[in-house]
């Protein structure tokens, strides 16, 4: 099989030009959102922006995988679903503390990533896309079959998770800032990770796996660890997502959601981490604005996505990056 690169080449990998201006501005603006929220219907703005921040966390995890490791996962929504169902199932069983819920979500995400990754990462390129898609679909059907936990229809959560017994997340602003803090922490962590030896080896396996092997690095282990880290972060996003929506259903892990997540990462520009955040903002804003005009907004959104792929190579950070 011809080995066409799976990636649009990132202009320069972010670790070569550690941009700080764009991420500082992005996080600064995100931190100010609650102040501006009363201008546009507070509950609506806060719920929308919390969704943006949570999905940005998932898109960020995908950027690690696609942008740095060169591995396209089309089943990443499965991890969101694992996180969301950890909250849903545990709350239904009476465990409402977010610490316990997160611990379970992260452990299950890591286990799922290691098991499916061990199979999927034996392949590359287009096979990997199809296999991750299939594993994502498998989790979707599993969730649909959980008759005790809502089945196809999903289930409504009794309320937001508690933090060590206190309902700190009850306020919309509190939830938003918690989500933003998680996003910021993970962002900084991943930046350190991609600049570390591990990150460089990972980028090396993306550029040329054979050469990396020749100088003594077995790509499989690095890829599997990257896949697991990415899955765990997306699982954490799922925990927050369940708290934001108050509702868990198989639709959380539909394959369209996986496609959306890849789009968010690609729209922002792969291989920069903060690009994924910008991409998520752009993607969800476009969706939200179009949906305001017509219920058939997808008829415009579809061509918008096609044109974005055809003409906006390098994504949003590509636009900013060239000027810097």
């Amino acid at each position: 099989m011809s080995d066409v690169a799976v990636l649009p080449e990132p202009a320069t990998p972010a670790f070569d030009r550690p941009g700080t201006l764009v991420p500082v501005v992005v996080f600064g603006l995100l931190a100010l959102v609650p102040l501006a929220a009363p201008l546009g219907g507070e509950a609506y703005v806060m719920s929308f922006m919390t969704r943006v921040v949570v999905l940005a966390l998932a898109a960020l995890s995908l950027d690690l995988l696609i942008g740095y490791a060169g591995l396209v996962s089309f089943g990443h929504a499965a991890f969101l679903g694992i996180g969301a169902y950890a909250v849903g199932i545990l709350s239904a069983e009476g465990v409402t503390d977010i610490v316990a819920q997160s611990a379970v979500a992260l452990a299950v995400s890591a286990a799922f990533a290691l098991v499916t990754g061990a199979v999927a990462l034996r392949t590359e390129g287009v096979y990997l896309i199809m296999i991750t898609l299939a594993f994502g679909q498998m989790m979707f059907f599993l969730a649909s079959a959980l008759a005790g936990y809502g089945g196809d229809d999903g289930m409504t959560l009794p309320g937001r998770s508690l933090v060590l017994g206190r309902d700190l997340l009850a306020g919309d602003r509190a939830l938003y800032y918690v989500a933003l803090a998680v996003l910021g922490t993970v962002y900084l962590g991943l930046r350190r990770l991609v600049a570390s030896r591990f990150g460089r080896v990972l980028a090396g396996t993306r550029e040329n796996a054979t050469r990396m092997e020749a100088i003594g690095f077995a790509p499989f282990g690095y890829r599997l660890v990257a896949y697991a880290i990415s899955g765990v972060v997306a699982g954490l996003a799922g925990v927050l997502l369940a708290n934001q929506t108050g509702f868990v259903s198989p639709a959380t892990m539909s394959w369209q959601r996986s496609g959306d997540l890849i789009f968010m990462a690609v729209l922002g520009g792969l291989g920069s981490l903060h690009g994924a955040i910008l991409g998520t903002v752009a993607f969800l804003l476009a969706e939200e604005v179009l949906a305001h005009f017509t219920e058939h907004w997808r008829i415009v959104f579809g061509p918008f996505l096609i044109l974005a792929v055809l003409f906006a190579r390098g994504g949003l950070t590509g636009l900013f990056g060239r000027r810097a």
Partner: peptide, 9 residues
């Protein structure tokens, strides 16, 4: 284009 672009478009 790359497979990723093909999938997305």
């Amino acid at each position: 284009r790359s497979h990723l672009d093909q999938v997305l478009a």
